[in-house]
Design a protein around this nucleic acid. Sequence first.
DNA 1: TTTAGCACTCGAGAGGAGAGAGTGCTAAAC
DNA 2: GTTTAGCACTCTCTCCTCTCGAGTGCTAAA
Lengths: 346, 346
Amino acid sequence: MDISERKKRILRAVIEDYIATAEPVGSKTIAKHAGLNISPATIRNEMADLEAMGLLEQPHTSAGRVPSPGGYRFYVNELMERHRLSVQEMERLNAALQLKTQELDRVITEASRVISQITKYPSYAMSAGPSHVTIRRFDLLMVERQTFIVVVMTDTNLVKNKLMRLPADLSESQIHLLNCLLNTSFTGLTPEEITPELMSVAKQTAEDAYALLAMVVSFAIEVMKEQETYAIHMSGLARLLEHPEYRNLERAQPLLAYLSEEKMLSTLPMPDDSDVKIYIGPENAVGALQDTSVIVASYDIGENMRGLIGIVGPTRMDYAKIAARLYYFAEGLAKLLGPGESSSEH
Amino acid sequence: MDISERKKRILRAVIEDYIATAEPVGSKTIAKHAGLNISPATIRNEMADLEAMGLLEQPHTSAGRVPSPGGYRFYVNELMERHRLSVQEMERLNAALQLKTQELDRVITEASRVISQITKYPSYAMSAGPSHVTIRRFDLLMVERQTFIVVVMTDTNLVKNKLMRLPADLSESQIHLLNCLLNTSFTGLTPEEITPELMSVAKQTAEDAYALLAMVVSFAIEVMKEQETYAIHMSGLARLLEHPEYRNLERAQPLLAYLSEEKMLSTLPMPDDSDVKIYIGPENAVGALQDTSVIVASYDIGENMRGLIGIVGPTRMDYAKIAARLYYFAEGLAKLLGPGESSSEH
DNA sequence: TTTAGCACTCGAGAGGAGAGAGTGCTAAAC
DNA sequence: GTTTAGCACTCTCTCCTCTCGAGTGCTAAA
């Protein structure tokens, strides 16, 4: 895009003023801006050009200019300076990262809450599991005659358990046999690889203990499947209403409805690679997000898992600042949850 | 409260009309009501009396009447007929109760979502644990040389586990010893009963394995504490905006902010006994709920635990219908989760 | 190429008129 | 004594008009 240096400076001034005030920006306001020694009339001409290029918009003829989504995009790509966190900001984020628990679900929930508080926007957080999980190890523990605890450990080092009650008695040796059978024949398999044939072979070996075996296997499958699905959490929804663009309900309601519909959340942007991504207005595929921007940071939880933390807000937002905060926070979460930590189940 | 039969009928007609329309009800409207063959003028007189008794209110001099919180209370206590669910309603609720998972957290979340959908109000659901939990049983499983799975089972039949890594090697026999020590000295104790003295005695017995012991015990304490805390979930927040009383933001915003603030949620009404409870307007202790009503049903999960499911909405709501639905749903959840089921951890 | 000047446009907000719904009171009817 | 019809009154809501002010685009001069 060939665009003069002066136009860039004007565009940037318009965007930054609009981000700060939420009011359409007039030529006079820009003229007063330090560093630009040009008259309002000149600026008007330049703004008319910028509008023709699709970077600015006019709500109506006699109002100032407002950045278009394309304008924001240009700003984010080329004009925006990297925001450096102040010491206070870092301290605040660090304090928030002192999470008491390392339980994945809770960390995600808490992280989302904190980011929402700090950014003043609704925030979403999620964890995405790997696509192929297998069981590495089974353990059967007998509690009472007909009560067992089954413990399974996945190849992602996650441990899950379940208490099971059985109508039939089983002896210690039967349990031992079952344990061996499970650990030899059912480890390293994806749910699809546990075929009816495999089960019928196992049935012959397990005999009376087959009922328990079946329960254990179906639990294992459940665990594997669950790992592959997403856990998602949204926080601070009502903060949307604190921003002037959502002061009228017609605008706010559909967005709030979308964001509070749990099912819909999985349609929020979820980038694959590790970076802060910014989706401005119509760059979002989802209809309800056409007038909003989404900023999302992704981080490595290790063992094939990724975490995501992002915020949703009006297109007018301080992209530099928010992106920097998300980036810093995501880095902190990666350290907290990332590879090298012992992953604890929940 | 001595109040004539006719006044009761008028009050009831006013309330039910207001519930249906959300508009102040005039004398003419009531006069047209089937069954009441009295003129608007008479009704005006009666309504003036009802207002003097504090059961009705007038938004302004020349508007119709609106029920006061006291009026709703009287209606709920004495006038309201028990709503009987239609077959469709029951089917819908039954379908919603076909939850795939029995994981407590998920059931709670899902139940809240469903109730919110059905009632069109934001809903909250929670589980409250017992006040004293102890560990019934410990199991230590060795995965690799320095990696262990610890499994603890509480006296509420909940099983939790954690993967632990240790910098030091331990032998099979040391593990066995530790297992015995844990199961003899640390079972049946509340977190408070695990004193520094007890730990130092254990230290002498455990010797090299003390590091692992300490990790296991602190995990056990974490599990016990966690059991005593509440898990809460809110769903369908944005539905609030669908109701006319929240069409202006000044009214909606503080309530939405309150309900989306996770910490605050624990101040929502949480009755102890099994019944549907109704809190109307100022009957709620919390300031943010002064203009709202809360209907909440409580049910038994068994093993000392209770579940709660409720909705929040404007004071104008169809108390009979909502209460009936919550009651039915809570009963279903009790069957699903209640005593007799094997409680599975998550 | 930039700037000053000026007519023009458009939205926000204030003020006022009128309609409509509902009331309370009075006096007549049952 | 209770109920009802009639009527003046009150208050909100909506619509209309008017004005104000901010900001623009265009033209002509610097």
